[in-house]
Design a protein around this nucleic acid. Sequence first.
RNA 1: GCCCAGGUGGCGAAAUGGUAGACGCGCAACGUUCAGAACGUUGUGCCCUUAAAAGGCAUGGGAGUUCGAAUCUCCCCCUGGGCACCA
Length: 787
Amino acid sequence: MVGDLSLKFKSDIMVGMDEAKKKERYFPKEIEEKWQDKWQKENLYKFRGDSKKEKYYNLVELPYPSGDLHLGHWFAFTPADAHARYKRMSGFNVFFPNGFDAFGLPAENAAIKRGVHPQDWTMKNIETMKKQFSTMGTMIDWSHEVITCLPEYYRWNQWIFIKMFEKGLAYRGKALSNWCPVDQTVLANEHIENGKCWRCGSEVVQKEVEQWFLGITKYAESLIWPEEPKVDWPKSVREGQNNWIGRSEGMMLKFKISKKDGQSKLNMDEITVFTTRPDTTDGATFVVVAPEHPFAQQIGLENVKQYIKEAQKKTEMERKEEKVKTGVFSGEYAVNPVTGKEIPIWIADYVLATYGTGAIMAVPFADERDKDFAEKFDLPIEKTDFEAKPDGEKVVQYHLRDWSISRQRYWGTPVPMIHCEKCGIVPVPYEDLPVELPYNVDYTPKGKPPLATDEEWLNTKCPKCEGEAKRDAETLDTFFDSAWYYYRYVSSHYERGPFSEDEVRALMPVDVYFGGSEHTLGHTLYARFFTKFFKDLGLIGFDEFAKKRVQHGVILGPDGNRMSKSRGNVVNPDDIVKEYGTDAVRLYLCFMMPYEATAPWSTDAISGIYRFLHRVWDLRNKVEDGAKMDKNDLVFMNQTIKKVGDDLNSLEFNTAVSSLMTWLNHLEAKKAITMDECYVFIKILAPFAPYMTEELREKLGYKTSIHLEKWPEYDEAYLTGDKVTFAVQINGKTRDTVEIEAEYMADEDKVSQIVKESAKVSKYLEGKDIVKTIFVKGKIINFVVKN
RNA sequence: GCCCAGGUGGCGAAAUGGUAGACGCGCAACGUUCAGAACGUUGUGCCCUUAAAAGGCAUGGGAGUUCGAAUCUCCCCCUGGGCACCA
């Protein structure tokens, strides 16, 4: 009996103690759920357009609604959110919207696989992801949300497309295209990986397809980045885009076809070649044309016909992979305009039909490829001194090709065009927009566009002659959707145009655009193209849509490989949030490496962050009324305020977090801290850990949100302490460090005098002549000595 | 082949002409505990040294500029990304 009683008594005390301790302990889950609700109810993150503060447009690439936020999303969004929060605390009116890039193949593929309608699949995923976003604790204002698959958005895709059509920028053309036989669609070059479809991995084939193009090449010149652009974009992006556009200056040269026998059956007199090196024309010993060139088509020789046939069988991929050059002599000759000599004309597929004129002059002396060819077919090689001056037209050529924009798929923006037998292609009148995507359509692959199977939708009246006509059954590439969505954010429900020009004037251009490097040659280039087009339409007044572009790195799996389901190395953010809480995940993502870097996720290292948060949680227990701050404490505080602020501003998140840690170490070493120290610490931690800091502030007795607080100001007078440490060097080698009163930090003579008293230093100076003294204020004194 | 970004402890990384390795992980010893976990304290680049002091060596390799170089210049090697017969 007694034993039982004492046991009961003991365990009661234990439970009581645990409860008391529990209340004081940091439990992220409870706090985070509490504040998610509260922030939402209080509309804390609502953007106020009428504010007089300076605007700051913080933009992260809009996600694709795959149905799950992965660690990559967290890495893209949470440091960007910390930046946005800092900007807001430092007095800016921050606009941080988000949306979903909701059209596209994955929805259609998933739908086909699982028998769910793409729209239902997409909208359900968006719902799930928005919940996950609220866990993330960002200050995104969802009232400006854009979902690209909704008619209120794609209506304006159609509007823009028709404007482009009117300007001759959207046109119907036929082209040999990359065709995916499984997805039954045309693919852009960017969507082919090693000759295979980026989605389904099947072999891409070449097929002549009629399709819509956007004339981005008309903007090639204005899309070229200047040496020193006015906006802050990474060099890698600027140079990557410039290489992709591939501007080269050269000359069109005419080579007369030799007709000395007077019996040529050809219906052309000359071949025009493009060269960037007209100064080598005297070294041109033969001419080569592509198999598709009109000249080649006219040659009657059997072996030539055979060669052309075989070349056309090969895909562009196969041709590019070939290492050995092939070709055939046409039997005809041309005249070198500089030397007057007759030179043979060859047909070979190392010359591309789609670049320049599809014909070149071969200068084997100066060009590696021509040299290979000349050696293989025993053609002459003649020296050039690079001084030839042929007559020709100076031209600029671009590597960039027009953008194939139409897709033979269902889940996209319908092309707003009508095909009429009498009137040809007629745009849908503006007042009839949007052309809505019908819901009940058989979207399984049939070899023709799914929309073409919906007769009711397809058949319509021609807006011009009112006769029978058919709608265009193709849909737009989703890169069209994402090329201008950030304009739509500013007035996401605007009905009189794609965007309110007033709102754009007030909020654009974007101040910082966060995203991935995979969009260097696709999305960001198209976005710049649309911006130039909008400017030409007179809708906007600037040239570049984003003042600054930052590209985040990649978080690899713990094994150092890219995360993938097949490798089984996927780290699920939801699991980590469950274990450590959102604040820890956010803080760790900021801390683990620079934003631009690529490195593996470490499951262990986040525990250090978790420990840090627990220590912050307990910090207020050290606050005492009688606590004092000495000079050193003040310097620590002011330096940290400055460092964290500067780093958040310049997106150096990792060093910002580490300086918070250093200050915490200092505060913990003190017996007691002041309320000021505790409160300032919480404030400057707030952009990284919005939940915990909000909770702590409430515990300190405040009623309003910490996220509406102003960033603390630092005091210049306390950025340096009473003493500074000088490194004392002899011939550039540090031999000692000496503490000097701060008032002498700029006084070379005084510092020199104090420093020479050091035993270590005097040992090195003994018996030597000081030839020179180098003095760096507050840091270094270096004696250059000679024996 | 061309263009871009990199190469620093056992690991993630700081330092962008001025004390290399801040901060964090990991590891070790000690404390706490019946024990473990958690937590706390101290230590932790390498070599020499019982240890300390002192010294030497170290930022992919080699040269150079400089009083002083991870940082700037040149050559070479390696890794990641992009482009690639563009005349």
